[in-house]
Amino acid sequence: MFEQFTDVVPSFFGYLNQGPLTLTIFLHTVIILPMIWIYFDEKKKLKNGK
């Protein structure tokens, strides 16, 4: 399933780049997931607070 990167020089990001959008979807997920935590943290604060 995992291909060698097609790029010239091997690299970490090259490995994540496994065809259709793997790399970019990975990065988007990593960026967005913590926002869920921020969301619940804020919710807790709102409930406890005023």
């Binding site: 790029d7 990001f13 790399l23 979807i25």
Partner: peptide, 27 residues
């Protein structure tokens, strides 16, 4: 969130690695 990594859309053809295609495109 979109603009910083969106920089990748200028790194498609200037000698930079192919992984920028995906990063530049989607961001």
């Amino acid at each position: 969130g979109s603009g910083i990594l969106g920089l990748g859309h200028h790194y498609f053809w200037i000698g930079t690695p192919e992984y920028w295609w995906e990063i530049g495109a989607l961001f």
